[in-house]
Design a protein around this nucleic acid. Structure first.
Length: 657
DNA sequence: TGTGGCGGCGCGACA
DNA sequence: CGCCGCCACA
């Protein structure tokens, strides 16, 4: 009965993917083939039909948004029976495990999670400790290299052993120092969340055994985007029961730069020789021309598993093409098409999306949309939680929760300005490094010592304010805590005094932060058995949340985002803009064959987001870095058979089906 | 110590 | 072009 309703309306392949519950299973799911549906129904089938307890199931995705959607749909199918199943991201799963188990690795449970900026600052500090000049050794490059090692699952010692040139040797030494600084700060970066979890499982088999026993059924979404260390983690988790289902599409692998490794799919069939393979090749999303055009582009890749996508949505419009004179003309064309579609076809703005290769390309579109008063949303770019004022406010919470972390302290020590400048901070830093003290204690020494002159009392007052806040705030929810902090520190007053439009914008962002904290508290009433405070849970959430997660697709606004961000979404009308050599494919990948193939897959991803109408545009001339340059139409455009395309005119569009 | 001006450089995508 | 970091000056 329940089984019938769970399997209802599924095609034979989808059905097979749902019903094959035991043993390793590889689902090759093309774009728009109903992959999420299969995952959701598979979870429901396991619980509702096979009688597997919800706690024994783990489903992992890459974004919180995807996890949230999946959780919602499972709950809709099963009701309360779905409670206890873990549907989460790699990073959130690891944080939850590490918050319980990190003691084994010598850190404490209140560890901080560093974002890219924090991490970069620690790399700079590591360089300083090595006496290296940051101008000669680009910190960003080093951070990148360390991240690559982490994605590959290599610790500093292993990185040092694998180093084949002087650059890597030096980088591995910086890596070692960087890790020591993080440990001293009781902090982990993004890469560590995964890497340290695999370390935990490797070094403490009894801990690994606990989680292996718990999760009898493991599912991994977007498997083509996993990197080596995630592969290792998955093996560790599913090693005992081997009921491992991975779902992916090699043609949509677009995170090579993040360490994603297509070998994971090949190795999967090698490591689990009894793997069942299911191919989902029927596309339910796009019209024929769109699907054929996208397939024709990706077919130019050499490193590729053969796959034949098909759709029954024959007919529909051809793919539109437009060659603009420059980026302004391109943006005007796009807005004109959106306005026409709204006026003449009754389309909502929310049905339209603009995808570009790089975030910097959003500007002309934003300007035109503003000019014509068309509501829009830019998804991605500078994350909300990375804005300076938001990070400042959160840093107070972090400094209270994790007193060992110098990063939070550095941020807040002089914001709002309280007369503790660079010189004072440097004196404390040096003291901390020399004596092996936490920065906070070094600051206390500075406050006590008379030699510091008049700054001593100021530092003392700051530390006192901090401990006062700790006492006041620990029992409060995140919103009340933040409000109290912004008040007591004079942060709000300082911004209000400025009175500039920029300051007003910052105040607005802080109000948004408070609203977000309230929403969080409302949605996360403390569950019994969770010994972490609401403030701590809130900090985890903001460390792991992305711009996309908060994005509401249904809103009556045009969506602007990169092709990467668009992955997993779909829209009736899609504009893929800036289709020029050097932009898409990007100049950094153009000479490297593997890089070029990844660009092509990204193009495939962008095109297959469209349900009914796909418009590709390029500009003959474009301003970059403030100067003009001529552009050639992207090679990807010429890879679409001309029988599938038409140059865009401005007549009313043909009838739709 | 805080601020404002200037010069240099970057824009590749992300949890 | 726009942002960040550095330096001169109040």
């Amino acid at each position: 009965m329940l089984g019938e309703s769970i399997l209802e309306g599924m095609n034979p392949e989808q059905r097979r993917a749902v019903e094959t519950t035991e043993g390793p299973l590889l689902v090759l799911a093309g774009a728009g083939s109903g992959k999420t549906r299969v995952l959701v129904h598979r979870v429901a089938y396991l619980i509702g039909v096979c009688g597997i307890p919800a706690e024994a199931i783990l489903a992992v995705t890459f974004t919180n948004k995807a996890a949230g959607e999946m959780r919602e749909r499972v709950t809709k199918l099963l009701g309360p029976a779905a409670e206890g199943v873990w549907v989460t991201t790699f990073h959130a799963a690891c944080v939850r495990i590490l918050r319980r188990e990190i003691g084994h690795l010598g850190l404490s449970r209140g560890f901080a999670i560093y974002d890219e900026d924090d991490s970069l600052a620690q790399v700079k500090e590591a360089l300083r400790r090595h006496g290296l000049d940051p101008k000669l050794n680009d910190p960003r490059r080093l951070r990148w290299r360390i991240d690559q090692w982490k994605n590959a699952g290599l610790l500093p010692s292993e990185a040092a052993r694998s180093a084949r040139d002087l650059d890597d040797e030096l980088a591995s030494e910086v890596y070692a120092t960087y890790q020591r600084l993080l440990a001293d700060a009781n902090a982990l970066d993004f890469g560590d969340l995964i890497l340290q979890t695999t370390q935990l499982f490797e070094r403490f088999p009894e801990v690994a055994a606990h989680y292996q026993r718990r999760w009898q059924y493991v599912m991994i979404d977007e498997y083509q985007d996993t990197n080596r260390v995630q592969y290792k983690l998955v093996s560790q988790l599913a090693g005992e029961h081997r009921n491992l289902c991975v779902v992916g599409d090699p043609d949509q692998s677009v995170y090579g730069w993040r360490g994603a490794d297509l070998r994971n799919i090949l190795d999967f069939e090698r490591d689990y020789p009894d793997t069942a393979v299911v191919k989902l090749e029927r596309n339910y999303r796009s019209t024929q021309a769109i699907l054929e055009g996208a397939t024709a582009v990706v077919a130019n890749n050499r490193a590729r598993k053969d796959k034949r996508m098909f759709t029954e949505r024959s007919g529909g419009e051809k793919i539109w093409r437009y060659e603009a004179s420059d980026e302004r003309d391109e943006a005007q064309f796009v807005i004109r098409q959106i306005l026409t579609a709204a006026r003449e076809e009754g389309r909502a703005y929310g049905e339209c999306a603009v995808f570009y290769r790089t975030n910097a390309q959003s500007r002309p579109f934003e300007e035109e949309l503003l000019k014509y008063n068309v509501p829009y949303v830019v998804v991605g770019g500078v994350r909300f939680y990375e804005r300076a004022e938001v990070k400042d406010a959160l840093a107070y919470l972090r400094a209270i929760v994790n007193p060992a972390d110098p990063m939070a302290l550095r941020r807040i020590v002089n914001s709002p300005p309280r007369g503790i400048g660079k010189a004072t901070l440097e004196r404390a830093e040096t003291l901390a490094a020399e004596r092996g003290l936490p920065l906070r204690q070094a600051l206390a020494l500075v406050a006590e010592s008379g030699e510091a002159g008049r700054v001593g009392p100021k530092v003392g007052a700051f530390l006192e304010l901090l401990s006062l806040l700790s006492r006041e705030v620990t029992s409060l929810g995140p919103a009340e805590a933040l409000a109290r902090i912004l008040e007591r520190t004079g942060y709000l007053a300082h911004l209000e005094r400025e009175g500039t439009p920029e300051a007003e914008g910052r105040l607005e962002n802080l109000r948004e932060l408070l609203a977000g904290a309230e929403d969080f508290a409302a949605a996360n009433t403390s569950s019994p058995g969770d010994e972490r405070s609401p403030v701590e849970l809130f900090l985890d959430q903001v460390a792991l949340v992305s711009d996309l997660d908060a994005y509401e697709g249904a809103a009556e606004r045009v969506s602007l985002m990169t092709a990467h961000t668009a992955k997993g979404l779909e829209f009736p009308v899609v504009f893929l803009v800036g289709m020029e050599e050097g932009i898409f494919p990007h100049s950094a990948s153009i000479r490297d064959p593997a890089g070029l193939e990844e660009e092509r897959r990204l193009c495939y991803v962008g095109m297959t987001r469209a349900r009914e109408r796909l418009i590709l545009s390029c500009a003959r001339e474009r301003r970059r870095y403030g100067s003009h340059s001529f552009a050639t139409p992207s090679r990807f455009l010429s890879e679409i058979p001309s029988s599938l395309t038409r140059g865009a005119d401005f007549e009313p569009s043909p009838a739709r089906d």
